[in-house]
Design a protein around this nucleic acid. Sequence first.
DNA 1: TTCCAACTCCCCAGAAATAGCGAGGGGCGG
DNA 2: CCGCCCCTCGCTATTTCTGGGGAGTTGGAA
Lengths: 237, 237
Amino acid sequence: MTPGVETILEDLEHATGVEDLQQVIQALRDHFGVDHMVYHWVNSDGDQYGCGTYSDAWVARYLEKDYLKIDPVVYGCYQRFHPVDWKRLDWSSRAVRQFQVDAIEHGVGNQGYSVPVRGPNGQFAMFTVSHNAEDDAWAAFAETNRRDLILIAYFFNQKALEFEPGRRPEQTPSLSPREVEAMTFLAIGYSRAQVAQTLSISEHTLRVYIESARFKLGAQNTTHAVARAISRGLIVV
Amino acid sequence: MTPGVETILEDLEHATGVEDLQQVIQALRDHFGVDHMVYHWVNSDGDQYGCGTYSDAWVARYLEKDYLKIDPVVYGCYQRFHPVDWKRLDWSSRAVRQFQVDAIEHGVGNQGYSVPVRGPNGQFAMFTVSHNAEDDAWAAFAETNRRDLILIAYFFNQKALEFEPGRRPEQTPSLSPREVEAMTFLAIGYSRAQVAQTLSISEHTLRVYIESARFKLGAQNTTHAVARAISRGLIVV
DNA sequence: TTCCAACTCCCCAGAAATAGCGAGGGGCGG
DNA sequence: CCGCCCCTCGCTATTTCTGGGGAGTTGGAA
């Protein structure tokens, strides 16, 4: 690990507020000598929180256009575990290409490298480095700094979780085993009758579980409950 | 980072099969000079996969007694983002204390340090170091090697995901913008009528989107479609 | 012991979703 | 130009889900 990173990480670990994160991320940007560095938390209800060096104009634009929904970086990171080079993402759709042009016009680099991070209750965030560079140079940079970036993403997320407890979905209540089973089977397409048969219980009993789970999850209906259970990591489909 | 770890991590990254993971974890155990080192993947349905240096007897015992359900390490890691020292967990309940005695009798150290790791689709695993030591010595060890352990946990999980046969190869179909909107609103608990009103279209039209999305996703019903859309990252809820 | 949470079962009526037929216009790429 | 996908709207009948009741057992925690 580069000595500079070491000390900046120390600062990060001693950060006591959101404003410190902004300081740290700028220090990191300068240290790595890249155009931008951004931490981007995407909450399970579409809510988002970011901190980094993108221009205010670009952030506003991103929110205004609701780019979150089509951003291939978000989509790509969401599906992967390992860090992703933006080149490896799918930029083919029309809307996405428009987004790309818009981003570059707003000073986002043509190259990027994003590290997905996941926390409890389905929390999800990304730590991104963006720069203007040739492919070769960028590949070398990413390869060299990969481990540092993973650690930085990790500690950044740790701090973000620490500072923003309110941002987390309401203390996820745990589901009982039967409720988990019920939600899981519903999530893989079984009807109530099928689930009841599979679990060898009456459909009435099953309904109690579903309603109980729905209540615990604060969900409006079964689909909502299943969606929440999945995005909070209570069930795996 | 200690030089030894560096080379072992290289080996880890070049691992081509599950058997290599076992080699690597033993090398890591020897390098850190601790009693045990374990990677433990836990699915929410109770399915688990592990690899490490615990005795076969203990692993068998753990499975036989279904200790997964009461293991405070699993529970504690599941709720946290940062690594946890076993001391900070709740060992108060009677069943848990019995588990603790059993574990120590089977050669698990009295001290432990576990790093939670999370992947896409709610994947969850832990990387654990366990040892027999005094509190002070252990705290020092944990503090010193924390970052290395986080990185090791990260790369170990990456490899485990890579070797996981259940990885879905089928490429996910893309949904049209309207379909994405429909799925998104359904996932946050709107009824069909509400979604239709929100999108300012007739409920009949909405139904076409839902059915189209369901078809594309190979889903049996709306709940299934929404579940798939979420777990494939097509919508962010 | 007492209490609570989890698990199990039952009825009924109204609301919502699904399955099956349709129809037509607009835009984009081969 | 034609085909394909996306967007929009319609009807009817059937199945499924939801919301309102109530009731008993069991095992673990306070």
